[in-house]
């Protein structure tokens, strides 16, 4: 999650001060990603240094307010239209565990897969409860929860596919359709 671009997006609605940015950031992301005010101010300082926002004092108070510059607006627009990096596969801990488990003597790979499947489904149940209790108009929260559910769902599907493939590989071949190499050789002689 890019705090930098989220701040630019919030400022595109008009000038705001730091505490308000923090409040709106949490509200718009369904309060799933908490952020501390220090992170907001550090981000604002960097954005100001880069010429994307400018600050000034409001007439009616001591709060420093920030506004978007033309350069900041251009950067926001560029970011919104740039696809995220989905090209390089992440180093997935679960995939590595299953790959390793295949070669560890005495480990039941089906049991390893089921342990992870159960844990992921339990997490999905927890997220679904969050969605169930969310009010219908809290669309930000529902969208964030949906994203998490789809991500976890893909993990379960990968585990199901891995389970099915491994069972196919490890199940004994039927002699008539798939003779062992030695037998095939004997038959050819």
């Amino acid at each position: 999650m890019s705090v930098r671009h989220a701040v630019l997006a919030l400022l595109s609605e008009g000038p705001k001060y730091g505490l308000r940015l923090r409040h709106e950031f949490e509200e718009r992301t369904g309060e799933v990603w908490p952020i501390n005010v220090g992170q907001i101010y550090t981000t604002l300082q960097r954005l100001e240094r880069d010429g994307m926002v400018e600050s000034g004092l409001e007439d009616d108070g001591p709060q420093k307010t920030y506004r978007l510059t033309a350069e900041g607006a251009a950067e926001l627009n560029r970011w919104l239209h740039t696809p995220p990096d989905l090209g390089s596969p992440p180093r997935d801990e679960l995939v590595i565990k299953v790959l390793v488990a295949m070669h560890v003597p005495g480990v039941d790979i089906g049991e390893v897969i089921q342990t992870h499947r159960r844990r992921v489904v339990e997490l999905m149940q927890e997220w679904t409860r969050v969605k169930r209790d969310a009010s219908e108009d809290d669309i930000s929260l529902v969208l964030v929860v949906d994203a998490e559910l789809f991500r976890l769902d893909s993990v379960v599907r990968w585990l199901d596919a891995a389970d099915s493939r491994l069972r196919r590989v490890t199940s004994p071949p039927t002699p008539r359709t798939n003779p062992a190499p030695a037998k095939r050789k004997a038959a050819a002689l």
Partner: peptide, 25 residues
């Protein structure tokens, strides 16, 4: 799994056997 996650409890079947189930919330 997305549909199953609406349930209070999820039980897992494998080869006709109940092999596992989720913990209470």
């Amino acid at each position: 799994a997305q549909l199953a996650s609406w349930a209070d409890r999820v039980v897992f079947l494998r080869d006709g056997r109940m092999v596992d189930q989720t913990a209470p919330p």
